[in-house]
Each structure stands twice: as structure tokens, then as C-alpha cells.
């Protein structure tokens, strides 16, 4: 564990807490894409299925449980919570996110570390996470007035993977040159997708 990765994980955790706070405090999910939240839940379920088979550290296991339960809680709120679900703007959240799932799955079948169930699920989760923010970015660009909690949520979500890129650079120079090209490329695409959001976020 290095400082970049820890900072990345904390930024990621913070983004989830900001979103939970927004939904809980305002009892509203206006401006939040449910499709992006569903994609993140799939990302975590596909990536953390080794939660019960491989123990890496207490930190690793606790964080996996936190990310799975929080993403599921957010999706549940947006689908089932009587007050929150009414504030979901369904006709605005129109991105065909099934296409993202299919594309990530096909990519994972072709490009993976090893052709095993676990590695294909892991690659699928990495590719899907890279594009999972798209429905949310489209929703933001619909010009609706973005409340600043939602804006902060997206900002921290974009920043976390940037810290991970620093983490990969650090590990490359300190731990030997493992091939992490799947994480590398996906991480660059993921952070790149936020570029115009960051541009407008700082201009605003």
C-alpha cells in the first residue's frame, strides 16, 4: 500500500459518502444517474467476488464490503425508497448503459490476464468502471442546474482514479515492471472521460 493508492481509496470512499449524504439529507436524487449507479454496483460485484475466497488484508476486505453495500444502498434508494425514487428524472437518464456492459464483456473475453472466470470478471469490471460514468456525464451536460453535492460527487470520483494512476507509476518504479496494462489503459480512459467535466467544474 502506498500513499497514492490510499489517497485514491479515500477519495473514492469520500465520493460515495458525498452521494449518500446528498440522497439522505435532501431525500432527493435529482441530477444523479441511476444507470451509472447500477453500473458501479455491477463493477463492484464483478471485481470483489474474491471477497470470500482470497483474504488480502482487513483494509481490503472492509473496503470491498463498504463499496458493495454502499452502491447497492444507493441503487435501492433510487429504485425503492418512496420519497427518493420520485425525484429520479427517468426521461433525462437515457444513456443505453446495456451497450456499455456488453462492450466491456466482449473486451474482457478478448483482453484479459488469463482466460479464467475470475480474470475475465476482473477485466470486465475494470473496463466497465472506465465507462460507467458516461450516463452521469450525459445527464450533467443536459444543462440541468447541477446541485453542488452532485458536482462534488463526480469530481471526487474522477480524482480517485487519477491517484491510482500515480499509484501505478509508483509501483512500476518500486516493485518491478509487472504488466498492469489493463489497469493502466482503462485508468487513463476513465480519467480522460472526466477531462471536460473537470474543465467546466473549475471554470464554474
Amino acid at each position: 500500500m502506498n500513499a497514492f493508492r490510499f489517497l485514491g481509496d479515500m477519495t473514492h470512499l469520500f465520493s460515495v459518502l458525498v452521494l449518500l449524504l446528498k440522497i439522505y439529507a435532501t431525500k432527493s436524487c435529482s441530477g444523479v444517474s441511476r444507470k451509472t449507479q447500477e453500473l458501479y454496483m455491477v463493477v463492484f460485484l464483478a471485481r470483489y467476488m474474491d471477497l470470500f475466497t482470497d483474504y488480502i488484508s482487513l483494509y481490503n476486505s472492509v473496503m470491498k464490503v463498504v463499496f458493495i453495500t454502499s452502491s447497492a444502498a444507493i441503487v435501492w434508494c433510487m429504485r425503492r425508497h418512496p420519497q427518493v425514487r420520485r425525484t429520479y428524472d427517468k426521461e433525462q437518464d437515457t444513456f443505453r448503459h446495456v451497450v456499455l456492459v456488453a462492450a466491456a464483456f466482449v473486451l474482457a473475453l478478448i483482453f484479459n490476464e488469463r482466460f479464467t472466470f475470475r480474470e475475465i470478471c476482473w477485466a470486465f469490471s475494470i473496463y466497465l468502471e472506465a465507462v460507467a460514468i458516461l450516463p452521469q456525464l450525459v445527464l450533467l451536460q443536459r444543462g440541468r442546474n447541477v446541485d453542488n453535492l452532485t458536482g462534488q460527487y463526480v469530481f471526487f470520483l474522477g480524482a480517485y482514479r487519477a491517484f491510482y494512476i500515480l499509484n501505478w507509476i509508483y509501483r512500476y518504479f518500486t516493485e518491478g515492471h509487472h504488466s498492469r496494462w489493463i489497469s493502466w489503459l482503462s485508468g487513463l480512459v476513465q480519467t480522460g472521460l472526466y477531462a471536460d467535466f473537470f474543465y467546466y467544474y473549475f471554470l464554474r
Partner: peptide
């Protein structure tokens, strides 16, 4: 684990 790749990151 036998697998070469160890995914120790979140």
C-alpha cells in the same frame, strides 16, 4: 494462490 496475477488493489 496459483494465479500469476494478484489483484491486491480495490
Amino acid at each position: 494462490r496459483s494465479d500469476a496475477v494478484e489483484h491486491d488493489e480495490l
